[in-house]
Nucleic acid binder design. Sequence first.
DNA 1: CCCCAACCGTA
DNA 2: GTACGGTTGGGGG
Length: 996
Amino acid sequence: MKKGDHLFLVDGSGFIFRAFHALPPLTRKSDGLPVGAVSGFCNMLWKLLTDARDTSVGVTPTHFAVIFDYSAKTFRKDIYDAYKANRQAPPEELIPQFGLIREATRAFNLPCIETEGFEADDIIATYARQAEAIGADVTVVSSDKDLMQLVTPMVHMYDSMKDKQIGIPDVIEKWGVPPEKMIDLQALVGDSVDNVPGIPGIGPKTAAQLLEEFGDLDTLLARAGEIKQVKRRENIVANADQARLSRQLVSLRTDVPLDLALDALVLEPQNGPKLIAFLKAMEFTTLTRRVAAACDCNAEEIEPAVLKIEWGERAHGPDLDAGVPAKAPIDTGEAAAEAPASLPKAAVAKGVGGATPAELAQARIEAFAKAKLDPSCYVTVRDVEVLDDWIRAAQETGLVGFDTETTSLDPMQAELVGFSLAIADNTDNPTGLAVRAAYVPLIHKTGVGDLLGGGLAENQIPTSEALARLKPLLEDPSVLKVAQNLKFDYLVMKRHGITVESYDDTMLMSYVLEAGKANHGMDALSERWLNHKPIAFKDVAGSGKSGVTFDYVDIDKATAYAAEDADVTLRLWMVLKPQLAAMGLTTVYERLERPLVEVLARMEERGITIDRQILSRLSGELAQKAAAFEDEIYQLAGEKFTIGSPKQLGDILFGKMGLPGGAKTKTGQWSTSASVLEDLAATGHELPRKIVDWRQLTKLKSTYTDALPGYVHPETKRVHTCYSLASTTTGRLSSSEPNLQNIPVRTAEGRKIRTAFISTPGHKLVSADYSQIELRVLAHVADIPQLRQAFSDGIDIHAMTASEMFGVPVEGMPSEVRRRAKAINFGIIYGISAFGLANQLGIERSEAGDYIKKYFERFPGIRDYMESTKSFARENGYVETIFGRRAHYPEIKSSNPSVRAFNERASINAPIQGSAADIIRRAMVKMEPALAKAGLSARMLLQVHDELIFEVEDEEIERTLPVIISTMEQAAMPAIAMKVPLKVDARAASNWDEAH
DNA sequence: CCCCAACCGTA
DNA sequence: GTACGGTTGGGGG
């Protein structure tokens, strides 16, 4: 930006309120979505962008941005708790328009800006002052008096509804003071809407008169005694502090940290088709025609955009990513990763009667708790014509419950046995909801006892033919597929060449709503929400020795089971979806859960190569070493026994040999845990040490070197772990079959197992891990100055802690001192207790208590964070991550002190662990588009909580590392601007041990 | 055959 | 002190 340029800053949030009240007849789209303010906004933008010269502004913009309020929580709230406290929730019709106006802004190819902790006005002030300093002209598109303090000879305001420019004389005319005195005037007058107190009995006229007389607020307050009017004098003297506070509240900040520099606001040419697609979706016919004419496009040929905002959604809580700047500093692929699915029309356009989202959700809950499932609506589909009818019905409804039946719970091994579809005929009237469902058997066999090996049962559509019909439905972005634990079905279908597009997952919805509170399995959800106990799998397929795979289940029984599953899933969606909106959790679901389904599915499908030879050699070595220990152990014990049995071992150690017992287990047995054995070893006994070593060797052998080869897939020859998206309270993933998130790394012996995880020829494994992400998150959420500083400066965080606490200089610090500080730092993350810290460090509990006290003295903000987190948890029963994910702790108020304390520690930990989990989730969602955009072929294989592992072609490694690193480091953006930088270390090698 | 307790691998 | 999953031994049915 240079002198003579002209910057337009639009107050987006202000516009919505103003337009809403100024345009009385409520404008609605055909489905009932209210769009009056959006319409006014679009017309205004178009006018300013095309012929600002013909308005009273009289100049053409060179730079342009639209600014929004981020959320109600700003620094002003910290100064004055009551700030904007009595502002009531925006009217129902307004709510969806906040998101739509952001979408409109992006459709106009304009940057859409908001910053956490600041109001739009502060951002506008900051940009305006920066531009002015360069010598550029500024037009603030708003008529809000709060912005009038910004007016100077270079900065004008513009009231777009009255087409009136506002300059210095206009401010004086309206308020009786020049712009630079607006702050003092507002401080005296106050603002009842925003709850700025001001001084009672003083309105604009009196304030202007007083400022005229005394010059400014400070002088006025200092010389208030000179005021003749008794009442007025008393009021001013009594409320001087209130006036000073008010001045603070109304003063706009001009030092807001900005993600986009002024230069990035340069006006870009319009993207005609993109804008037209949006305008068509909004049904703004006049403006669509105008835009089409101006950019020489044929509007007929352009499909309406799929709106990401639906009526009834996002009632609370902002979409943290709503303000993704059109020109993000780093292209994170955010747009590509955005929610593909939208509610089908039939399910959307209701609730226009004015019910709140919470009321809608409650009505659904009640309706579905009463509605009965009707198995007479379940059919078996045995020919293609009938299947086509079902698929056509699903296309028309735009919404279908979907479930696969297979021979295995492992999606990489499972054979597709059949699938089911559920269709709701009258979603507009949930009380009278009728769901019909079909099961399509594909490869069911004849009777189990059939000695001929169970040939195919008759009258089943051939798999290839059925899938050819199903594929267009599953891949149709305009039909929403609803499944329970979709990742499974997604992978099964993917292996048959079908990529499911547009989906929702009821398991993930439940997880977002109730993590920590409830089980998210389908049967439990059904009992909870539908008052219906579904047929148990073991009742149709048996279990254990008498169990069969689903292809041996009788088709009638299979239909009853499978059709019911699809029915239940669809009903659960009807109940859960409105709750997401009502609870303000739609964004968490759409940004952090749903997109991961396919990202994880692809990771699982890729798998990773392990070198079985290395493992088998290791296994032999471990067996030999363990055998040697066994001999010595029997010798020392004086008899043979089952070393692996804690009970028998306890008898030997604490009975026969008479060693002093340490801790007890919860069943009252003497504990034989490693720490107890280490303590005994330290007192000079030989046996305990050998037991510890034996345990390590046998653990490595049984859990890793022996077990891993069994997971190698017979065809791909790779190991395909299964990630669970919904099994932790905090938001972390978990990995199983095999668990690749607990491969040893701490001991040299254990690390050898990592050398068996290898890259394919011509490739390397790249491991990229966040450095100290949880401590960084802590520094961010608790806002600890020393921690923030240390991370910004790249200082050793544990040494810094030690130095703060013990006064030891970082240079030449004894390692023991640092070790203690490190244990304390970890303890803090885990919701520290003196007991736990003492245990960890092997010190007295009183000494550990002293450390904690000292720590809190040096870092009082941490204590504040812990206390406020606990009281939040007690009050609400849950805690939140920085992205709004909830973790529930229903037992936080338990009368059992140890249960209560445990829940308190967990709720202190959850926002930290969970925010870190959210950050890496975001990185994973952004990663594939980022790599694709850079033209790289790297494949993401594994996630280990703070680490991502990729397989990268040798020639691409140098170009890939920076993309991976920056995607991970920027993952919180733009939803959250972290107060500390995130740091990622990455390296490449031919095996996981060397890469890590 | 199923489930639990104890133990231990990871972040 | 947080969050997981896997293996083993051992008890109950």
